[in-house]
Structures are given as C-alpha cells and as structure tokens.
Design a protein around this nucleic acid. Structure first.
Lengths: 125, 125, 125, 125
DNA sequence: GTGGTCTAGACCACT
DNA sequence: GTGGTCTAGACCACT
C-alpha cells in the first residue's frame, strides 16, 4: 500500500480523501486481491485522525465492493477482475465528469476550448 | 438578464449557483455594463429562496467586482473591458480546472484518455 | 410519523432499528412523499441517543433512496411509486429470509414444520 | 460426525456456526450418545481457525447440555432422550422465531404473505 | 434553525 | 490483536 496523504485543511472531507486514494489504488492494481489493509486504529494513529473517520472511509469502500471485512481479522482487498476494475473506474470518472462538464457549460466554454485548456495545463497544474 | 435557475435539492449551495450563473452572464456579455439587477427581495420571491441567500450571492458578485451597489438604488453590472472579462473567465476556469484535473490524475487517468472522455460526453452528459 | 421506539439494550444496533422502523413506515405509505422528517438533532434528543447514531440511520435511508436531504432545510421522504415500494419491500424481505431460512434448514426443520410453527406463533410471539 | 463447514467471511461468528451445526447434529440423532467429539486442537487445525474459537463453541455446547467433558479424555455427546431432544429443538427454534417474526411484523407483512414467501423460497434460497 | 464532519474516548464481541 | 458501535461535545457552511 502506497502512502496515503490526507489534508485536514482541504474542504474535501477526510474520509472522502481516504476513499478516493485507496479505491484508486485498488482500481489501478497497486493493491492486490486479498491484501490486508492496515487496521482502522493503526491508520487513524498514523494519519493522526479519528478512528471514526477512518471507519467511515472503510465503510464506503466495503459498500462499493472494494474491500471485504472479516471481523476480528481485518479488512481485505476484494477479488476484482480487470473488467470489474475498468467498470468501476468508468463509473467514478463519469460521475465526476457529469458535474465538472456542466460547470464549464454554464461558463459558456466550448468543448474545443475546454480541451485546449486541459491540453495546456494537465501536466503543470 | 436571462432566466436564472436554481436547484434547491442540489448539493451545490444555492448562493453559489446564483453567483456562477450571473457572473457567467456578465463575462459573456449577456448583461451589459450598468444594467440594474433585480432587487434582492424580488429575486428571492421569484426563486422562492431566502433573502439571505440572494444577499450572499450578490455580496460575492460585488466582492469579485462583477457588480457595484448604489445604496438606495440597487446593484448594477460593473464596467468591464473585454480584457477584464477574458481574465475573469480564465481565472474562474483555472481555479476549478486545478481541482478537477488533480482528481483525474489521482485516478491515474492520462491526459489523452481524459480528453477522449470529454470529447465523447461533452454534449450529452 | 408514528412513534419510533429504540431499545438500547437490544443487540441490534440502534441505527439499524431506526432504519428499519422508518423505512418500513415509508414502504407502507405511513409517511407521504416530501414529508419532512424530524431533524437529526431533535430525534437524537427525544430518543436520548447521539446525533451521530441518528445521522448514520438517516445516511442509510438516503443511500437506499428512502429519503433525500436538502442541506440547511432537512430530510424529506422520497417520491416513490407503489411499484418502487413493493420492490423495496420484496428486497428487504428476501434479504432476511435468505438468512433465516438457512438457519432453519441447518436445524433440519422441514418447510411444513416451519410453516406450522409460524402459523402457531405469528400472533403471540 | 458429519463434516462441519465454517465460513470465515460470514457475519455470523464462527463459534456460533460451530455450535449450531453440532447441536443440530446431536438433536437430529446424527451423533449418538457418548460419541467422542474430535479434540479442540484437531478441529481447529482442520477448519483452520483458532483454538480459542473452537473452545468457545465447545463451552457453549457443554453449558447447554449437548456434550459433557471428561478431563484428559475429551468431550462426549450427552445422553439425551427423544423428549429432551425435541424440547431442545423447540427451544432453539422458538428463540429465533421470536426475533424473526417480530422483524416481519415490523415490515407489516401478514402471516399469510410470510407463509407464501416461505413456500416459494424454502427450497431455493 | 438545518446538515456535515470530526474528535477523543469508551465498551463490546470476536479471533 | 481486530472491527462495531456509541457518546458528548465541537465547529463549520448553508438557509
């Protein structure tokens, strides 16, 4: 498991930052099936956040089928096929894209202009 | 002033929806310099939202120099050059783009893939 | 909204008791569409439980589409068709039935005997 | 003793799964009086679970009079009359039935509908 | 007023 | 050791 970073100053809820980072590691195959995640309490201690905040992230990971829990043992990465992962990624992307694109549309930005901006800033922002 | 639409059920704060729609109308030149905005109370009544919420949007518009207030008369569209407008638009876009792109990067999405998604879904999402 | 009862002594988590009681009231039509639920804090106070416990129940209600939230206003009963409700009820029943029946099977109880027990005790247990 | 199967991923505690399976074998007469149960350590090894977990199941079996222990020799199936067994089974069934039925009642399910569901799904769930 | 999030600590069951 | 639940209080944004 790669390092997890959490910004307590961000407007984005901590539990959501956790969810996004871990789910994307699973989707990208950086966390193999049946890998044991660090325990809720260990994670809380290391990141200096509350146990309940970690639990909330883990709950969402389980609810969306990224991990499974064996009470008394810990939480493990679910067994996902490449197809599962591709589908999960697509879902996550489209959910956000929907919101993001509607924003640029409101601003009156054309598709071409948006793409130009992305092309220009993707690496450096 | 074109019709303003507000979704009370959205997760996006109402005042922010107001701000985005009006500021983008100003940037795009749909609201000419010195145009009188409808009064806070009228707007609140028409959109069936609270006066306080409208006030918050108007405040932010004034604070970011989109409108100016003449006490006792109302709020008017600021005198902005094309260059001002272009710069404001750029600012608004880049602020958001920063957040959005970092999200897609976290997911491990390449620039090319992102552009492909946008090309595919810009019209229909 | 009918009275909600919560047994802190039960092994069943409080948030789950809340979820079950409210969702079943919605399914059975005792809570009409767009009815405003009592606020999280009011409910917590009345039932003498923590705000977070109520929140967890409300979260699950929202996640399973029984209610929707307007931040700053409150939580409202979703607009569900009779068909939606019938389907939700079926789902809830089958989920449980699966667990329950497997238990009686393990005990070696035949379908006929189980039905006899239910016929005998449904009213009085 | 028939094969015992244990699902470590289940929400049901492992010791309880053990208890249910063995007690039901005794009740149904598949384990005769004075049969020697496999040792705790053997069972733990075969099922790949902890000795403590098996011990907990055996303890509960003894406490509810299904087995008796001869220190240094092992655990044996108690001498139970048909009447004893019938009564134990009834007890186990009624304990659970009480909980289960109250759940279906909360959902507003009538006795007739519940029986219909069971009739439909007993074999296939 | 409303929800949304978070903390620091607690107690429990299970392994 | 592990996770599951809960409390009592806090601070924040939004209406």
């Amino acid at each position: 498991m790669k390092n997890i970073e959490v910004a307590t100053t961000s407007k984005k809820p901590i539990y959501q930052q956790l969810f996004e980072q871990i789910s994307s590691q699973i989707i990208r195959g950086e966390l193999a099936t049946d890998t044991l995640l660090p325990s809720i309490r260990t994670t809380a201690k290391e990141l200096r956040i509350s146990v309940i905040t970690v639990k909330k992230a883990w709950d969402e990971l389980e609810q969306k089928n990224f991990i499974y829990t064996i009470p008394g043992k810990g939480c493990f990465v679910s067994n996902l096929t490449k197809k599962d992962k591709a589908q999960m990624m697509e879902e996550q992307i489209l959910t956000r894209l929907k919101t993001h694109l509607s924003y640029y549309k409101t601003l009156g930005l054309s598709k071409e202009d948006l793409i130009e901006y992305i092309d220009k800033y993707y690496e450096n922002l």
